[in-house]
Design a protein around this nucleic acid. Structure first.
Lengths: 204, 204
DNA sequence: CTCCTTGTTGACCGTATCGGTTAATATTGG
DNA sequence: CCAATATTAACCGATACGGTCAACAAGGAG
């Protein structure tokens, strides 16, 4: 990877990266064409290769950038510095939206990357998705205050159900090509209110 | 399309069709290779063309078959012959699982087909997804008995949340390549119990 | 204006893949 | 053993792909 890329105006960097996230999120690694990324990013294919060397290097950069940005966003929103489950959820989803403003297709890219099967990519993505999501589930369960929930509730099932819904919601948004962070943020907040109402004792 | 296809043993027919559903659900129409379908279906590419003429014809057959099978399953499970929302939901999901036993990738295929953007396909798929899903939502709301729900509940939001979760759940199963109807059926029933508990007055 | 550096690209290359065809080979049934 | 049918390997032309390179544009320094 060529360091000159980072000397580009930030806006141009992001335009290129987002083009790559988009194309890699809509196609499998093997079938994602570099030429399409270049076109979508508004530069020539030759220049794209000039910056990133080859396809795999570009993919690796996208992956590590996704990791780094996600970690940063989670940290900035103090996601884990509360015991209230719904507050954690809220911060987590808001951080996701913030990220979406700069990189609309990063979430879809990560989701797809986790399940990429060809060995060339799997060696880049050491972690497997189940491990990551189970790990964060465990962390949340260690932290969270259990007293606010209804007594007859299977909390692990609640957790899974909520994240199924989040994924299903995002899937719809991506499919409709309606990745509008403000709208998504608003609807996330409404969903959290709903969940708070149905899953807790007080129901407020 | 060649009628000789239907004279094949049913098992072989299904193997070929499922191979096609699988490949078309994992790739966009344009990038789904006929050769891969043939390999996955255990026949030669030439024979595949012999039966279906060309790629578009195969796709059209898959689409109309999906429509027909879905309608049949919904009918067979008397999905709309009850006023109880959760009973309707249960029948709908059970019919989905029954279908999945014969055609594991049909659901994923339909979902993808609805959002296919290239005109060659859009003319085949007249209906657009939002129309279809809104139509079935309206039908359900006309039929269902509202008295069983908590009074403080926004029912439309509940409806959306539930179907987000169903889609998110299925997405995970497909991504993990764990399309096991028995398992999915079991977990669907558990989810329905959960929803009944949290969304209704009695909560049972 | 010239010269040099830097950024950028169109055109090109070899290869792989794709949709579709065909001539030939299996297989089946009488 | 033969004829009809089922099935395929091999092929074809077109295109798409990853990657390269020589040339061009732009901008500043002298």
């Amino acid at each position: 990877m060529n360091d000159k890329f980072f000397k580009l105006p930030l806006e141009k960097q992001q335009r290129i990266i987002n083009a790559a996230y988009k194309v890699f999120s809509q196609n499998s690694y093997r079938k994602a064409p570099m030429s399409e990324i270049a076109d979508e990013g508004g530069i020539s294919k030759a220049l794209l290769f000039h910056y990133f060397g080859n396809k795999k290097e570009l993919y690796m950069y996208l992956w590590s950038n996704a990791i780094e940005m996600t970690r940063k966003a989670v940290r900035e929103y103090n996601t884990l510095e509360t015991n209230d489950f719904f507050e954690m959820l809220k911060r987590s989803l808001l951080s996701k939206c913030a990220l979406m403003r700069d990189y609309p297709y990063m979430y879809a890219f990560s989701l797809r990357a986790y399940y990429e099967t060809i060995p060339e990519i799997q060696e880049v993505i050491q972690e497997n998705y189940s491990d990551v999501s189970n790990a964060s589930k465990r962390i949340v369960f260690e932290k969270m205050d259990l007293s606010e929930f209804r007594d007859d509730m299977n909390l692990e099932m609640m957790y899974d159900e909520i994240f199924y819904a989040v994924d299903g919601y995002m899937l719809k948004k991506y499919r409709l090509d309606r990745v509008i962070p403000d709208e998504i943020e608003r609807e996330f907040l409404d969903l959290i209110d709903l969940w708070k109402k149905i899953y807790t004792k007080k129901g407020v």
